[in-house]
Simulated scan of single mutants.
Amino acid sequence: PIDLLVVAVPPKETMAVLRDLQTNNLVVDVASIKQPIMQAANHLPHFVGGHPMAGTDETGFLGRKKVRFNQASFFLVGNDADCRRIMTLLSPLDSRFETVDATEHDALIALTSDATHLIAQALVATLAVNASGEARPFIGPGFRDTTRIAAANPELWTQILLANRVATTEAVTNFMIELQRLWELLVDNNAAELLAALTAIQQIRREY
């Protein structure tokens, strides 16, 4: 007997597989977008939408070495009984399982993951377009840390961003509002308010 079917392919392919799948077995996926996935699987009696926060910027078989499920958040969308079965079956992963609503999941992931990829990519593009001469000697840990995820698979991230485009668009819009606020303080040479803003941001970051 089959205890669990795991669908582990990119979002577009995940939806295609789920639409064609006919089974009464317990099924889980691992894509980072949940609303369209849940819709594609609404005919499956025991489907749980899964999202382990264990991805990296590498792809393919060799990229597996950087994937770490241990203590990573693993979100589950589905009925309580099926989610509990998933937690039991996947307990050897030692992940931090948490049930969540699909809409809430996608909105928060847009803020913490999807928008950050676009922002990192925009930073790299800004450097490429505006740097005069050889910029490599001027690139330090700050730029590398901030833009590491811009090296992720473009095809995969095109799928992810488009699948969650409404929430991601809102997240990027909110980012631009905050960036505009800091930009204005810089333009105004407002040292006191800039310091206060950066200090508040530092405190928030330390909480994560």
Rank of each mutant, 00 (worst) to 15 (best):
P10A: 00
M87P: 05
F175W: 10
I33G: 06
V166N: 13
H46P: 07
V67E: 05
P10G: 01
H43K: 12
T116L: 15
F75A: 01
A102R: 10
L195E: 11
D3M: 12
L108M: 12
F47G: 00
T173P: 03
G142H: 05
R64T: 14
T169P: 01
A110T: 10
R165P: 09
L179W: 15
H43N: 14
P52Q: 06
E178V: 09
L179P: 04
I86H: 00
R19L: 08
E13G: 06
R19D: 02
I204Y: 12
M53G: 04
A41R: 01
T88A: 09
G140I: 04
Q203T: 13
P137E: 12
L5P: 03
S95E: 06
E178P: 03
N164Q: 12
L156G: 01
L194P: 08
A110S: 12
I160S: 10
T99P: 02
A191V: 13
E134Q: 10
G142F: 05
E193N: 13
D20E: 15
A171R: 05
F69N: 10
R85F: 00
L5C: 02
L186V: 02
L194W: 02
T168W: 10
I201L: 13
R181A: 06
T14M: 09
L182I: 12
I201K: 07
N25M: 06
P11M: 01
T199Q: 09
T14D: 04
Q71E: 13
L198C: 10
L195S: 09
R19V: 03
L162K: 06
I177K: 15
T99Y: 01
E58K: 15
A81E: 14
V172K: 00
L76Y: 06
T126P: 02
L89R: 08
T14F: 03
G63Q: 15
V28R: 00
P45N: 12
G142T: 09
P45Y: 10
L161F: 13
V7H: 03
F97G: 00
P141W: 07
N130K: 07
R148C: 00
N164I: 11
N190G: 00
M176P: 01
P141G: 13
T158D: 14
V129Q: 14
P10L: 01
A128I: 04
Q22M: 03
A163C: 13
C83R: 01
V48N: 01
D80I: 12
V9K: 04
V67Y: 05
C83A: 10
F47A: 04
L156Q: 07
L93G: 07
W183C: 10
L4P: 05
A151P: 05
D114C: 09
Q180K: 11
W183Q: 14
V9G: 11
V7P: 02
T59H: 06
W157L: 14
T99I: 04
N24C: 07
I33E: 04
H105Y: 03
I86G: 02
A150H: 03
V48C: 01
N24L: 07
A191R: 10
L108C: 08
V27S: 02
V6C: 07
S73Y: 11
E193C: 06
